[in-house]
Nucleic acid binder design. Structure first.
Lengths: 336, 336
DNA sequence: TTGTATGCGTTATCAC
DNA sequence: GTGATAACGCATACAA
């Protein structure tokens, strides 16, 4: 049962029906300064016909003519987005829409480097916002050569110096500081830090670890990293290792989910939390409220999306580099 | 510090540089669709220049000329995507890319109805894949009139009869069946089912409840629904209510996250799980492995993404309605 | 006050 | 075999 596919209405269709030229229609629909003096009668007539025909301007045609797109292309990371990232993207979508831009997301795993850059560039977005592991130097070059602004996510400003690439970054070291400050203040001396083993997460884990170390060692507390995979078995292994080498006083669990897995393993081993081992997660997801004891965590609070949107759009329009880091760490005390 | 924005290379640029016509260049780069004979020498020359200039075909220009886009627009739901949905979208993105399509996601909250439909239609995607609550009848009309295929997510085939709208649906009732079968088999007679109070989730919750009821009441077991919000307080309220009215033998917790919250509240109230109250979640997220006791759950397994992609693309190309429901429920027994 | 004409980058149909 | 050239839908400078 194949239905005929309707042909979308065009400016010409409207013009014909109203009995004016396409220029007039275009002027009316865009409230163009050039055609300021079009009688109200014509205007309403044009508008009503446009409505009746269900006219929707053809974004491709428009962008071809204008030479620019209103598209911001966000390339998703391979890892599943947590609520933090999801909220950020949704809020940003809303905010940039108010500024005349359309934020669109593209998520294909293992799609990176020059080949990926080419396919992104084909859409001629005003900007590409992509995680660091999707961007190679050559790939970035393709985008820059196509006049597309590039935002590298998870890259520190220093790293992108001289590349013409803007950055959008979370201060993982600062998060580590906050977690560390809390733990040393409570008197813990032997602190362990979980670090994910997988590539992308490992980088963030190490930055959080660094922040934790800076604070802890400054206060004479020792910090030992522990690599862990995103599995219950790996959590059990970590705990088993500690039972041999000696349990730490406290653990910074990288994020809530790794912490949750670890908590399970600790309880299985009969370790009392937080009496014997304290535990701090990160991200303040609902997971903290499900676990018993409830998880103490470090939340990353984002400044207003509108402000972030303005910074991004500004950088895109002027094609100037900016370095954004709109999140600040806040400790949320609970039971652990 | 404003840098000059480079102008992307075009076919004409290549043609000029090589010394042939744009037609020749186009044929070479598209691998001569018509039976064109172009000497190998020219071909390699064209290709190398294209490469050197970093040429990327302009998707807008192409779609304007061809009259169709390779775009599939996925409109995200307001709720945060769980790993199940995220995996599905990522896999689908990959698969449709193999079929020459580009799946792109658009997530703006509270953007619905005709206004939203217009902005989606402006991109002239081959299809729009949107959750039911984003699609009004008028909005769907706008899309259909623009020749855009519409997939309604979370809509049963019966509901879309005669509307020309395809559906992509999860069999929540079947999920309820699986959970129910497990519980009655284990001999529970007084079963409670959590149902989220918020609009979008409430619908799914009720479908799951219906499935559970069908199985349970058939076996002489009673089912009582309990409304709950996505907060720890609400979970505590539910438990408090049960303590007054009598605890159920078993609970189907809607999904893992609601179940996790409820588990916390049950433990707080001194209720032993699973000895006094059994608990079944859904989605098989990592949350199940964090909680103690570990959560029994119903996983929704998706058939191959490639097959789903083929169905979608087929429906789009022929503009015929299809009704997809690619997930099947599987019970995962754990401690609860 | 409104219409005509042009060009954006591509592809496809024609002549040569 | 290859090169002009028209057309896709839209915006705008310019002509009327």
């Amino acid at each position: 049962m194949t239905s005929i596919r309707p042909r979308p209405a065009t400016l010409t269709d409207i013009a014909r029906k109203v009995g004016v030229s396409t220029a007039t229609v275009s002027y009316v629909l865009n409230d163009a300064p050039a055609g300021r003096r079009i009688p109200e009668a014509t205007r309403t007539r044009v508008r009503s016909v446009a409505d009746e025909l269900g006219y929707v301007p053809h974004a491709s045609a428009r962008s071809l003519r204008k030479g620019t797109t209103d598209l911001l292309l966000h390339v998703q990371a391979d890892i599943v987005q947590g609520p933090l990232a999801a909220d950020f993207v949704h809020g940003l979508t809303q905010s940039v829409r108010g500024l005349g831009y359309t934020l669109v997301q593209y998520g294909a795993e293992r799609h990176r480097g020059v080949k990926a850059a080419r396919s992104w560039a084909g859409m001629r977005p005003a900007a590409v916002i992509a995680p660091r592991d999707r961007l190679t130097e050559a790939g970035t070059d393709v985008l820059r050569k196509a006049g597309i602004h590039v935002f590298a996510v998870g890259v520190a400003p220093e790293e992108s110096a001289g590349t013409g690439v803007s950055t959008l970054n979370m201060d993982h070291r600062g998060l580590g500081h906050t977690a560390g400050r809390h733990l040393v203040e409570r008197g813990y001396q032997d602190i362990a830090a979980l670090v994910p083993r997988t590539q992308l997460l490992a980088r963030m884990g190490n930055e959080r670890l660094t922040g934790l170390k800076e604070v802890a060692e400054d206060q004479g507390a020792a910090v030992r990293p522990a690599e862990m995979d995103w599995t219950p078995d790996s959590a059990a292994d970590v705990v088993a290792g500690w039972l041999e080498d000696g349990l730490p006083d406290a653990v910074f669990g990288y994020n809530d989910e790794f912490s949750g897995l670890l908590l399970g393993a600790l309880l299985d081993a009969g370790v009392r939390v937080p009496e014997r081992v304290a535990l701090v997660g990160a991200d303040d997801t609902m997971v903290c409220r499900m676990l018993r004891p409830e998880l103490t965590t470090v939340r990353m609070e984002c400044q207003g999306h509108d402000e972030v949107a303005r910074s991004i759009v500004g950088a895109v329009q002027e094609d100037t580099q900016v370095h954004l880091s709109p999140w600040s760490p806040v400790l949320v005390r609970r039971q652990t």
